[in-house]
Amino acid sequence: MIACYARNGLEENALELFVLALMEDIRPTEFTLSCVLGSAAVFLPWEQGSQVHSLVVKSGFESDYVVASSLVEMYSKYGLIDSALNIFSNMSTKDLISWNTMIMGLAYNGKEVESLRIFEKLLESGLHPDHITLSGVLLACNYGGLPEEGMTIFSSMEKEYGIIPRNEHYAYVVDTIIRAGNIEDAISILETMPHKPSAALFSESVLRTCGHLENLELIERVTKRMMDLEPQSSLPYLVLAHAYEQRGKWESLVRVRNVMEKMPTKKIVGCSWIGLKDHVCAFESNQMIQHGGKDVYLILRLLMQEVQDENYPLQIIDI
């Protein structure tokens, strides 16, 4: 049940169920702790994540390579990359998941060169990389601004490692090329893909960079592809409208704006949280969803009223 919650993005529920299991004096297994560590990195402050690590040590599972890999992932997501590296270095047994986790963690934390070195050590160990490994390597090349290295690895994926590039591989290498200023080469790669690309490939970076091109036909081709892939997105219409406006194509501009006005709007609700000692307070689009949120707002109104009674100029906003 904990694993089901964790895999479906319900990390808070997974952690609550884990606490209930501990209260029932149910001893966690290595599988349980691995799931909990993954959830802790998403939802808990790092101090509480380190407490789960202490439980791992107390339970005697620190040497288990599955749990150790989860620890590496947790500390990497917290940005404590040195702690992640220390755990990885001390692992007596490293499977491909362990190597992939470390490669990804280093890439995400701005340690691109170190990520590529770990990849080299993986090859030296005799293990065969998979598509996740190469995703991490291409991500490192992307973040490190290494277009030549990225293209070399991308071009040799199928020949050297027998791995057919997937959407995420194309996404990383295309973004790397765009960052190097070669937008037309990036679009050429997208248009020669052997399978239909996802909307994520025609990402915001591709479209926004397209807006600065002089080739209007190329802009229209790219935005049209994005419209077909993701009809609800307004971004390609905005890019196209801007291109028409810059070139004085007023009839085309009006036509695009008319389409945009008829598009259904989809509101994205943001969510954030903050950890205070042993509690995590969550906030969702101006609405506190933790227990007692209404009481907090009530006290806030009273404080605002008290400030106003002291003759301070204050505009009270209805929350």
Rank of each mutant, 00 (worst) to 15 (best):
2 I>W: 12
2 I>A: 06
7 R>G: 10
9 G>E: 03
10 L>P: 02
11 E>P: 00
12 E>A: 11
16 E>Y: 01
17 L>R: 08
29 T>Q: 09
31 F>R: 09
35 C>W: 13
38 G>M: 02
39 S>R: 05
40 A>Q: 00
41 A>G: 09
41 A>Q: 00
42 V>E: 13
46 W>H: 06
51 Q>R: 12
51 Q>G: 04
56 V>A: 10
57 V>G: 05
57 V>R: 07
58 K>R: 15
62 E>S: 13
67 V>Q: 10
68 A>Q: 12
70 S>I: 07
73 E>V: 06
73 E>P: 00
80 L>Y: 01
81 I>S: 06
82 D>W: 13
84 A>W: 08
84 A>L: 08
87 I>Q: 03
88 F>Y: 10
89 S>P: 04
93 T>A: 04
97 I>K: 11
99 W>R: 03
99 W>F: 06
99 W>T: 00
101 T>Q: 02
104 M>C: 03
105 G>V: 02
108 Y>G: 00
110 G>Y: 11
112 E>K: 02
118 I>A: 05
119 F>D: 01
120 E>V: 04
120 E>Q: 11
121 K>N: 04
123 L>H: 03
123 L>N: 06
124 E>S: 10
126 G>P: 03
126 G>I: 07
127 L>K: 05
129 P>L: 05
132 I>T: 13
134 L>F: 10
142 N>T: 11
142 N>A: 08
147 P>N: 05
151 M>Q: 06
153 I>Q: 04
154 F>T: 09
154 F>A: 13
158 E>Y: 08
158 E>S: 11
163 I>W: 01
164 I>A: 01
167 N>F: 10
168 E>M: 05
169 H>Y: 07
174 V>A: 11
176 T>V: 15
176 T>R: 10
182 N>W: 00
186 A>R: 06
186 A>D: 14
188 S>R: 07
191 E>A: 00
192 T>W: 10
194 P>T: 14
199 A>T: 03
199 A>I: 00
200 A>M: 08
201 L>V: 03
202 F>M: 11
202 F>K: 04
202 F>I: 08
205 S>E: 09
205 S>W: 02
208 R>L: 15
210 C>D: 09
210 C>M: 08
211 G>S: 11
212 H>A: 14
213 L>Y: 10
215 N>R: 13
217 E>C: 11
219 I>V: 15
219 I>Y: 10
220 E>Q: 13
224 K>I: 15
224 K>S: 15
231 P>N: 10
232 Q>E: 15
233 S>E: 11
233 S>F: 03
234 S>D: 15
234 S>P: 12
234 S>N: 14
235 L>N: 10
240 L>K: 00
241 A>D: 12
241 A>E: 13
241 A>Q: 09
243 A>R: 14
245 E>P: 03
249 K>F: 07
253 L>G: 06
255 R>F: 09
255 R>T: 12
257 R>T: 08
258 N>P: 01
260 M>T: 10
261 E>Q: 09
265 T>D: 14
269 V>N: 05
269 V>P: 01
272 S>E: 01
280 V>S: 00
282 A>H: 08
283 F>G: 01
283 F>C: 05
284 E>P: 09
288 M>Q: 02
292 G>P: 04
299 I>D: 11
300 L>W: 04
305 Q>I: 14
308 Q>R: 13
311 N>G: 04
312 Y>S: 02
313 P>N: 02
316 I>G: 01
